[in-house]
Structures are given as C-alpha cells and as structure tokens.
Design a protein around this nucleic acid. Structure first.
Lengths: 145, 145
DNA sequence: AGAAGTTAGTCAGTTTTATTGACTTATATT
DNA sequence: AATATAAGTCAATAAAACTGACTAACTTCT
C-alpha cells in the first residue's frame, strides 16, 4: 500500500527537521535562568552535558561531537576549569590525551542546570509507553548514525 | 515490575538530553557547505525551516519558537529579504501583522539547503518501521509540548 | 634513532549571532 | 481618546565561533 510509505515522504521529513529544531530549542532553553545564575552560557551547557554523560571524555571527541574548533572549545573549557567545575587527568593509555571529568562541584551544578530539562523529558515519557520511548530513542540514534 | 520503569530513570533522561543535542548538531550541520555557498549562516537556516514549513508565519510566532529577540530576528530576516528569498504580505485578519513566505527563489534554495539533512533522516527512517517512526514523532512532540 | 603523525594548548584578529534599551509607526481594541 | 499589540529601527555590547599560525608533548612508523 502506498499509504504505508507516507512517513518517507518529503513533508514528513520536513516536519521532523522542524521538530528536531523545536525539541532542541525548548529543552535546552529550560536551563537559561540556572545558567545565568552562575554566569555560564549555552556553550558551557553543551559541554557540561557531554562531560557529565561521558566522564573521562577527551578533547578530540568533544570537537567531533560539537563540531566547533579547538580554539572555541578551549575558551569555554577554561571557564569551567577556572570555576573548578572540571578536572583533568593525564590519559593512561596515551600520555598526550587528557581525560576530562566534572568535579564534585561540577556534578552538583549539572544536577541543578539540567533539572528542568529532565523534568520536561520525564513528563513527556510519563505520557508515553515504554515501547514508545524505546522506539523514540532508537530512531533518534539512527539519525545520529 | 521495577524493570519496566527504567526508561523514567535519571540515566535515561540524561541520555536523551545528549541524543537531542547530537541529533540537532549532526542533522543541522549537514547543510553547512550549501549555506556558505550562498553566504548564509545557521541563524538563516533555522529561520528558513520555519518559513518553509509554515508559510505565512508571523514575526511574533517566530520569536516564540526561536526564543530570540526581535532585533536578532530582524537582521537575519532582512538578509533573506535582500536576497529576495522571502516575501511579506499584509495580514488579512489583522493589518498590523505581516505574513512571511518563501519566494520561488527561496523555495528552491530551501530544497538545496535541506537536501542532505532530509537524506539523513530518510535513511534513518528506511531502517525503521512505520510504527517506530510514528512513535518517534509522538514522543518528540510531547517533549516540545 | 629519526621522521611523521596525533593530541592538546595558545595568541591574535575577525565574523556571526544574539543581547539590552530606547524609540517609532501602524493598526486594533476598549 | 486611551491603551495595547505587531512590526520595525538605532546604537552599543556581549557571546560564541571562526581563521591562521604556531608550540609542546607524546606516539607510531620505518
């Protein structure tokens, strides 16, 4: 049936582009007040998500994910280090690498920064079945690759 | 069963935050080259998505979605108008309003700008069942509200 | 051991994107 | 007539990202 393939149609793809944009803006916008309270911006927020979720992450990995330059990252990372939110450890496998972690203080801050964003997602999930959430994550991962 | 509620747990919520970030960055990053070719940036891209998908959209609506100021929007919108990618029409219901549309030229450009992004999403959908795509959109919409 | 490659960091200058605050114009509502 | 709303504008500033050039430490390849 042709109807079964409507979800592959142009209009549906465009809709999804708009949905991804809106989901990003609304969910990441939730943290604004909590960020300003500690003089941090959206660039810091994106970085904190990654370090929080991937303890020991390296600079190259961050650059590949955020698709920014080393210089841009360094400015933001130094802000976090100055505020003692982040610690670094020499890589054990490769001495050139530095493993980046959130400090105790950084973990606390992350909890506060992302509380409203997590509340928003939790509320959406509570309205959804476990299967819906599972499929949601599956497709999202396939979009990233 | 406790296991059934794992998807509401802290770790899962954090994962989703990271997935939303990655999905936004990777999918919207696809257009970079095509944007540079016409001297436009990411701010223009976000605006074009909205106008393309919501012909006749008004300024206030855009401001609420993109969560930027009137002044920021105006600079970007004027760029599109100067390049004759966008046309405006006086609102019929309310004379103060202006309805914003993509011109023929703007529609063409949108097609080119978003081709790789659509290809990425299409490829993800082809690996998914109609149900998976349906649930994906459902949950995404619930996150936005 | 030496050359080449990788990872991280830095300096300087520039561009893009978004902000604040003040103010105008046109139209609609009460 | 007074008030509110939608859009637009001027000026100054801040935030976020970029280009290009370069250093330092360490690893891998030959």
């Amino acid at each position: 049936m042709l109807k079964d393939f409507l979800y592959l149609k142009e209009k549906n793809l465009k809709d999804v582009i708009e949905l991804l944009l809106k989901a990003y803006i609304t969910s990441f916008g939730d943290s604004e007040k909590n960020l300003k309270r500690v003089s941090l911006g959206k660039a810091h927020q994106r970085l904190v998500v990654l370090i929080d979720n991937n303890p020991g992450i390296r600079v190259v990995e961050i650059l590949n994910i955020l698709k920014i330059t080393k210089q841009s990252l360094n400015r933001v990372l130094q802000d976090l280090i100055k505020k003692e939110l982040v610690t670094q450890k020499r890589g054990c496998r490769d001495g050139r690498e530095k493993e980046i972690y959130l400090s105790k203080k950084g973990l606390d801050l992350a909890g506060r920064i992302f509380s409203s964003q997590k509340r928003r997602i939790l509320s959406a999930f509570k309205k959804s079945s476990p299967d819906e959430v599972l499929y949601f994550k599956k497709v999202l991962k396939r979009i990233i690759e």
